[in-house]
Design a protein around this nucleic acid. Sequence first.
DNA 1: GTCTATAACCTGATAGAC
DNA 2: GTCTATCAGGTTATAGAC
Lengths: 207, 207
Amino acid sequence: MAKKQQEEPKAERDVSTEEKILQAARKVFTQKGYAATRTRDIAAEAGINLALLNYYFRSKEKLFHQVMAENLQQFFGIIAPIISDEQTTLETKVKLIAEAYIDELGQHPDLPLFVLSEIRNDPEQFKTRIPIDRLLPGAALFRQLQERRPDIHPMQFIINMLGMCVFAFVARPVFLAAGLTTEEGFAAMMEERKRLIPGWVEAMLKA
Amino acid sequence: MAKKQQEEPKAERDVSTEEKILQAARKVFTQKGYAATRTRDIAAEAGINLALLNYYFRSKEKLFHQVMAENLQQFFGIIAPIISDEQTTLETKVKLIAEAYIDELGQHPDLPLFVLSEIRNDPEQFKTRIPIDRLLPGAALFRQLQERRPDIHPMQFIINMLGMCVFAFVARPVFLAAGLTTEEGFAAMMEERKRLIPGWVEAMLKA
DNA sequence: GTCTATAACCTGATAGAC
DNA sequence: GTCTATCAGGTTATAGAC
């Protein structure tokens, strides 16, 4: 009976203390970054005592690495299966990437700025976790781009495609701070982007 | 004579202590961000004592605001005159923006990630300094995009254009950490981008 | 498991000698 | 102007009661 409770804590009405801390840590770390985050903020956000954080996770750094690993997986894991798929066409991949990325980031708008900043701050932890250097150059998408446009390095197109999906989220704080748009307006704009990106990429490939 | 030395300190062989601190602060703040920066790091980088930092700039925050104001001006000031120019065509603007931005960021690769992160951390300081909400919607570029493609919001194209120039620098730490490219390779890729972007934007506008 | 209290350390800032 | 020494406050982490 006690075991059953442990096995499905997330499905129950009240989550475990460990999960409460983890959820709070995800929120605070991702919003403010590692250096600006105080463990007190996480404890307060989780509604628990500061000592419990160390009881469950030993240190701020250990807790951060756990959150960071999740976020890296989320940020790079979205597209990994799509770009490696040998069955789909280039056009399909573009459509799937745009939809998957914009849907995902729409729910976690501060993920890109967080992930990219923290990789800058500590490139090593990233190096060991995500083998992009082995995934990307061998991926189906890479090869398909090379076949379509042998005169231009595939990375140029990949940067453009990812930029079309991700850059708006990186610049989102600017838009909001400047009053150029609201959170709702931004979401609507990104929805329209999902429809526009495939055509833009198609045009780019012919240019 | 003493006055002359003060009037042109940068032209002399040895810069003033104040300028040494400022240069060190630019470097450390921009690389690591406000929260992760220790005033001791800046002092060490400047080759001076910690107390001198407070003697010249009163506080870490005051020094940071000075660096941040410079960086904001650099990041947004590059394109401000170009997008507002009523004399140039849309095509010319695209070419000028790509060249100006990529040249500038090539010399300050960590500027975008720094500026965007710090705006996220403290939107207010940005709000008061850069009146983007008044500049952009009234700019010539904005109107020209609207005339060319009345069916698509100009902001969609502006995001793409800026993304094409800036996103690569935001993602640069990933490329370098992953070993996908070197600093020299990255610079060469961005040089090629300057040539490619005008054609891409033209194609996008017709799509 | 959870809390209070506190240790141990770090960081920004200042006092005061030179 | 520049330095050494130090303070005051904040932050992570732990000890120990419950």
